[in-house]
Design a protein around this nucleic acid. Structure first.
Length: 476
DNA sequence: AGCCATGCACCG
DNA sequence: CGGTGCATGGCT
């Protein structure tokens, strides 16, 4: 697994970035941590899709939100606890596969699933979503397709589609940067949050930085300069040369630049017009002009501020909704989790598993409905994507196979009663025998095997677990 | 105290 | 004059 790989004419060892330039710097270990492709589907994205999918798929989606939430927390912890490269934790009880999406824009959804985790898609249980019974068998839930609006003129839909395409391409979104005025005006000189920079981008030893390449989903390749400025005693990271991408996607201030990474480590970039959830930003910092006029002196511009500033979605942003919005947007779709899923990521109300799942789905749908209302400023795509068949030019090194699914490891599955495919590779814990058993944290685990794949769900009570197994057509 | 958007000096 | 690097200061 530590075999040198050749990318773009250069060889890289696992843990290194494929920097096109002469100086290739190793990635911090954390860079190798891929995010669960499911995480690519944002709360809001999933939400808007839920409106048209069956309860079964809805439940699945909502469950994934939990997963995503927890994963983000996990990543966040890693971020704060292990600043430097270090062995990444391993072992996880279960994981969720990617939510498949059907759209003409997409490739084979099944393919994306395999790219994603190499595991089957999770299935559902319970009354609302028969598994193994009259309904589709677990593996067939792949076909519980989720329609995505084909109307890319709608920014919301376009955002969803983009995310879906990223997922379909097997790319995990690293973060998104809402472009600031200086990001756009500065000739494609995009400031990258330090935390993200040091987690996912090549480590830099010199301010001059390195050249990295990337590709978008349309096959176009880009070359960026990855560098940093010494700011105070810290660093300020910049990605230069994003002008072309900005033009290709018609990005303006407020729009979003999306960074993702494929399993092979290559960097995938894209852009999309801002949507409502992107506007979640804070009030315009201040009025620079007046101030600067008065001071008449040195720099000090204006606007942004620390971690605040742009609302880039990453593993953070776990901020509660700002003061004003009383009820509608309790689901800060952007970076946070679905309503009710905070710390533990456990279903809020102690309901029977099936009911809980259904309720969660319902909530999500409701939230989505409310959320999808107020359309963003109606701006249409003004750029086009001429098909440019081109082999992508990997910019980032591939992940060692040991890295696959690391991000979701150690993550605790919620006791939401939803069956998820269990990834059996790379796990320290061997999937338990089929049936119902008491798992850690006083939770009951129902395990079943479908077509050779192991599925697991967690419950608060044994009865729930038993019931779920029965509903799934299995028996302990 | 750190982070980052931005103003602006400086350099070609 | 446009691009580059730095220093400032708003904001968390």
């Amino acid at each position: 697994m530590s075999q040198p790989m050749e990318i773009a004419g250069q060889s890289f060892l696992p843990g290194q970035a494929a920097v096109a330039a002469q100086s290739s710097q190793p990635f911090p270990q954390a860079c190798l941590t891929p995010m669960d492709p499911a995480a690519a589907l944002l709360a809001s994205d999933i939400g808007s899709q839920l409106q048209t999918i069956p309860a079964a798929a809805a439940a699945l989606a909502s469950a994934q939100l939990n997963q995503q939430q927890q994963q983000q927390q996990h990543v966040q912890q890693q971020l704060t606890s292990t600043p430097q490269p270090g062995p990444v934790p391993s072992a996880a009880p279960a994981t969720t596969a990617v939510l498949s999406v059907k759209n003409e824009l997409l490739c084979d959804p099944l393919a994306s699933l395999q790219l994603g985790l190499g595991a089957g898609l999770s299935s559902l249980q319970g009354a609302g979503a028969p598994v193994g019974g009259a309904g589709p068998s677990a593996p067939d839930l792949h076909k519980a397709l989720v329609p995505i609006p084909a109307d890319t003129l709608d920014p919301e839909a376009a955002a969803v589609a983009l995310t879906a395409r990223m997922t379909a391409a097997g790319a995990s979104i690293i973060f998104e940067k809402a472009l600031t005025a200086s990001d756009v005006s500065g000739g494609g000189r995009v400031v990258v949050p330090k935390s993200v920079a040091e987690q996912y981008f090549p480590r830099l030893d010199q301010p001059s930085g390195v050249t990295i390449s990337a590709a978008d989903l349309d096959g176009r390749s880009y070359t960026f300069k990855w560098r940093f400025w010494v700011n105070n005693s810290s660093r300020m990271y910049l990605l230069e040369g994003a002008g072309e991408l900005h033009r290709n996607y018609g990005l303006e201030v407020g729009d979003v630049m999306v960074f993702a990474q494929k399993p092979d480590g290559s960097l995938v970039v894209a852009g999309r017009i801002a949507i409502k959830s992107d506007l979640l930003k804070k009030a315009p910092a201040k009025r620079p002009t007046a101030a600067s006029a008065a001071s008449g002196g040195s720099g000090g511009g204006g606007g942004g501020g620390g971690g605040q500033t742009s609302r880039y979605r990453d593993s953070r942003g776990a901020r509660g909704p700002p003061p004003p919005p009383p009820r509608s947007q309790q689901q800060p779709a952007t970076t946070t989790a679905p309503a009710g899923v905070e710390g533990g990521g456990v279903a809020p109300p102690p309901l029977p598993a099936a009911a809980a799942a259904a309720a969660a789905a319902a909530n999500t749908v409701a939230a989505a409905a409310a959320d999808s209302y107020a359309p963003p400023r109606g701006r249409k795509r003004k750029t086009f994507f001429p098909p440019t068949p081109h082999v992508s030019n990997p910019g980032f090194r591939a992940l060692g196979d040991e890295g696959t699914s690391m991000a979701i490891l150690e993550m605790e599955a919620p006791s939401d009663g939803i069956f998820r495919a269990v990834v059996t590779q790379h796990l320290l814990t061997v999937p338990p025998a089929l049936g119902v058993a008491l798992a850690r944290n006083n939770r009951w685990t129902a395990t079943l095997d479908v077509a050779g794949e192991t599925y697991q769900a967690f419950f608060d009570t044994r009865d729930d677990a038993m019931e779920a197994l029965a509903a799934a057509g299995a028996s302990p």
